[in-house]
Design a protein around this nucleic acid. Sequence first.
DNA 1: CCATATATGGACTATTCGTTCCATATATGA
DNA 2: TCATATATGGAACGAATAGTCCATATATGG
Lengths: 177, 177
Amino acid sequence: MQVFWARGYDSASTRDLLEAMQLSRSSLYQAFGSKEQLFLEALRRYRENLIGRLHRQLEASPSALTFVEGLFRDTAQDAGSERAAIGCLIFNSASELGQRGDLPSREAGESVRAITELFRQAVVRAQSEGDIDPHRDARSLATYLTVGMAGLRTLLKSGADADEATHVVELILDTLR
Amino acid sequence: MQVFWARGYDSASTRDLLEAMQLSRSSLYQAFGSKEQLFLEALRRYRENLIGRLHRQLEASPSALTFVEGLFRDTAQDAGSERAAIGCLIFNSASELGQRGDLPSREAGESVRAITELFRQAVVRAQSEGDIDPHRDARSLATYLTVGMAGLRTLLKSGADADEATHVVELILDTLR
DNA sequence: CCATATATGGACTATTCGTTCCATATATGA
DNA sequence: TCATATATGGAACGAATAGTCCATATATGG
């Protein structure tokens, strides 16, 4: 998974994948059938891990707003790190695969939508907690947060420092209030 | 250039490039020396075209704010088109090449910064025109717009429709006012 | 018109790509 | 212990990869 994560779908070679998985060639094709299938499994697993973890964090948070704030601030603070340079597999894949119509492309789109859905739940809860105006459209605000996170990740990849990223994050979060 | 644009740096094969440029193998290597050099030239040319065009649009605009608004709204309205699926070479490259340290990667980062600089000029002018509070930090607002555009492009690649994108764009633009 | 310089077509490297195949090793169940 | 199923290592596949080379075409300048 880390191989697809760091190098992207097309550029990840089967040799890299075999080495990372400590697996023989035939074992991989016996277990997954193709590079495409392996990618689909890796992406789904990444998504379920991510969404699951974020969901638990959201539930454990004193308020949905502080969860969103913490998520964005932590991401910004990560500027310059190895993690920030690699980014997020979901946004990486969406950017690389675009709308090319095959299964990996559609799966990437689905994963972006799953992130938006997570954000939507957070927004709805923040509305019920009085932190966001309940009359505002939760779905649009959620998509806005997805756009903010996707853009932030691209900014970090372009080499922005933590200061710059943090200022931007505060501007993004201002919209919620 | 369209080849790098549509397929990315790594995945663009020399054969595709030759065909698109109507050029023979030896001619390409005589003229550019390597695929990397060719990419650098293509990216610089794309950037100068883009920045130049946006600069002219900005100058021709009745106000800097309407220029920014028009740019974002037009991009959102493009949802579902071929153009939107391909995205922007600069953000595509920044996302693909990340911080991997080589020349193409650094050039992609520079190009993102060039976009931010264009936005900064627009913000400064909008401040002088009374559309944006002059006390706000123009540089942060400019980076915010870069993040908004990068995120918007990722959203469009993930298959969002024009309605969704337009709502998000209005939220992005609200921050300026 | 001829000599020289540059541009080009296309065959040719060596390597890597994703995938298949088969012979052998290991595990499982009777 | 033996038969059978599954997992694995490694060789091999044809196609595609970036890049090189040379012989020929084309253009240029005297």
